[in-house]
């Protein structure tokens, strides 16, 4: 009542509005929400107070406590999780050693120009997606391996990214100087590409890796992929701020690959 009163609600509506506020708080606590928003709250001509629209967000980490909500994957999704999304979630579900986030960005598997996208960190992901879109390419998926994940988790993400049938390239988008030892990315990506590239000879890969143990990590990637049959370009911190260059190289390799395949 005090809250409603201090918000300037007229006396005749105080009880009803205070009731709404109390219920919102109850729902917030009971459902482990991070947001409950009613907007607009409507006063009808008949004097009733009703919610015109509302939004409720649940703390992702509390999803397991609410089976009654039927949440398949406790993340924000623009659609019902696809089979691909379910595989991606399987990496994260019980393994909390750093992030290994993978989800589809587009359900379109007919258009050309999709790239298997593997970023290292959320900021790097945004820069990487911009780099692709500026040259007319598109991320087929979102992926992020940051927070110092173990190599096995990074490998799983790379394998799932590379499992997409319609991609025309693979971009490891380490667009920031990561505060994690990058040799775990190096070992993981080398293993994944050594397994996958023989199935797709000439497949374009642009690998940008910068951060702790960068020199050693780049050496692992160069050495480990030396005789692997792909179009592989490897860059470090000298290109970490040059997203235009990385996008252009990705496009150039994709165009070569298309020409070779006659597509």
């Amino acid at each position: 009542m005090d809250l409603a009163s201090s918000a300037g609600i007229p006396n005749e509506l105080l009880r009803e509005v205070a009731g709404v506020i109390s219920k919102v708080v109850e729902v917030f606590k009971k459902r482990d929400c991070n947001i409950v928003e009613i907007n607009p709250l409507i006063l009808t001509r008949e004097g009733r107070v009703i919610a015109g629209d509302c939004r409720m967000g649940i703390d992702d980490n509390s999803g397991f406590r609410h089976p009654e909500m039927g949440i398949t994957i406790p993340r924000e999704f623009p659609w019902e999780p696809s089979d691909f999304d379910m595989v991606g979630w399987g990496i994260e579900e019980t393994d909390l050693r750093g992030s290994g986030f993978v989800m589809k960005m587009s359900l379109d598997e007919r258009s050309s120009g999709f790239i298997g996208f593997h970023a290292i960190g959320g900021g790097a992901a945004m820069i990487g997606m911009d780099a692709l879109s500026r040259v007319g390419l598109k991320p087929a998926n979102f992926a992020d391996t940051s927070g110092n994940p173990v190599a096995s988790k990074i490998y799983r993400v790379a394998k799932v990214v590379l499992s997409q049938p319609n991609i025309e390239g693979y971009l490891l988008a380490g667009f920031l100087i990561a505060n994690q030892e990058q040799w775990h990315h190096a070992h993981a990506v080398v293993k994944a590409l050594r397994e996958e590239l023989p199935k797709r000879p000439g497949f374009p890969c642009v690998l940008l890796l910068a951060g702790n143990k960068e020199e050693e990590s780049l050496q692992i990637v160069r050495e480990g992929l030396e005789n692997v049959p792909g179009r592989i370009e490897i860059y470090g911190s000298e290109r970490v701020e040059d997203s235009d260059f990385i996008g252009e190289r990705m496009l150039a390799l994709v165009e070569e690959y298309r020409k070779e395949k006659g597509t």
């Binding site: 691909f84 399987g90 990496i91 799932v160 293993k191």
Partner: peptide, 19 residues
């Protein structure tokens, strides 16, 4: 040789007929 199982990936590939 290190084996790293990926939950659901084989079924996904089979379902999509991806080799």
């Amino acid at each position: 040789r290190i084996e790293i199982p990926i939950k659901g990936l084989d079924d996904y590939l089979k379902k999509r007929n991806i080799k």
